[in-house]
Design a protein around this nucleic acid. Structure first.
Length: 271
DNA sequence: AGGCGTACCTGAGGGC
DNA sequence: TGCCCTCAGGTACGCC
């Protein structure tokens, strides 16, 4: 499940491999995953030059020469895989295949068909609803704390809301809460200042460490080169039901919050 | 407006 | 061996 560290890893890989290339054309095998609709999408993207690749929240942002942006969301199982010229078979479940002038290509593959690829105009405010970047200067303690005020929703549900803080998914929300010793079901606005401090810090810390390890491959995540991440081996709680808490030894529990599996330690996470 | 439940999908894995 | 059922989860959307 690509979250911020996985998307960052993919974006960096793409920046290194496809920047400077020219898009010859797009083959669309599953029309519903692109916008605008296929004829226009293909018309607009053909001939574009790749100016660079970045990330915003969980979106991969491919900057194009015209000022347009190709904005990709991988949802749960989406992949962006670069293939060198001469590769015969596309990545399995390829829904969109971009071919470059040098005959190399970019496969947008997704077995689950949830991922989306959107060609946004230069001035299109596609990220208007996307929240704070947790690894940017904007993510000050005061701004973060201000977002928590007055909310009754469980803190874990708050962390998953991309309109507030962008980039956390189920894995890193669970990990950040464990590190901050906060109970996932705690009402957001009720967190003490100390707890807020710890959470502000643990969010950044866990994301930075995960990026260093090129993300977590809990299921089948791979980066743009098809390589798995390494952070799945360093997860403290996610997916560890019944195993010992790394801090206190008590068994990690799995509960459900907002229809999602939530792993945590009943002894360590009490605040 | 905010919060909640459900639909969207298909592969994997468990049970029998 | 094979079939059926359930689960996984990010986001959009409809509803209250």
């Amino acid at each position: 499940m690509p979250e911020l560290p996985e998307v960052e890893t993919i974006a960096r890989g793409l920046a290194a491999t496809i920047s400077g290339k020219t898009i010859a054309g797009a083959a669309i095998r599953l029309p519903k995953v692109v916008s605008p609709e296929p004829p226009l999408f293909q018309q607009q993207i053909a001939g574009e030059h790749i100016a660079g690749v970045g990330r915003r929240g969980k979106f991969v942002v491919v900057r194009l020469g015209s000022g347009r942006q190709l904005v990709v969301h991988l949802r749960m199982t989406g992949r962006l895989i670069v293939q060198p010229a001469g590769t015969t078979d596309p990545e399995p479940y390829t829904n969109v295949l971009l071919t470059f002038a040098d005959r190399s290509r970019l496969c947008f593959a997704d077995a689950r068909q949830f991922g989306r690829m959107r060609l946004a105009g230069p001035e299109e405010p596609w990220a208007a609803e996307v929240g704070l970047e947790p690894l940017s200067e904007d993510f000050s303690f005061d701004r973060f704390s201000g977002l928590l005020d007055g909310r009754t929703t469980p803190i874990k549900v708050f962390l998953l809301d991309q309109r507030r803080v962008a980039g956390l998914g189920n894995i890193y929300a669970c990990e950040a809460l464990w590190e901050a010793r906060i109970r996932p079901g705690r009402p957001t606005g009720a967190l003490s200042k100390q707890a807020r401090r710890r959470l502000h810090s643990s969010i950044q810390s866990v994301l930075r460490r995960a990026i260093e390890m090129r993300g977590s491959s809990v299921d089948d995540y791979v980066d743009a080169e098809g390589l798995r991440g390494g952070f799945q081996n360093q997860l403290s709680v996610y997916g560890r039901e019944g195993e010992a808490c790394l801090a206190c030894g008590r068994s990690i529990v799995r509960t459900v919050l907002a229809q999602r599996g939530t792993w945590w330690c009943r002894r360590c996470q009490r605040r």
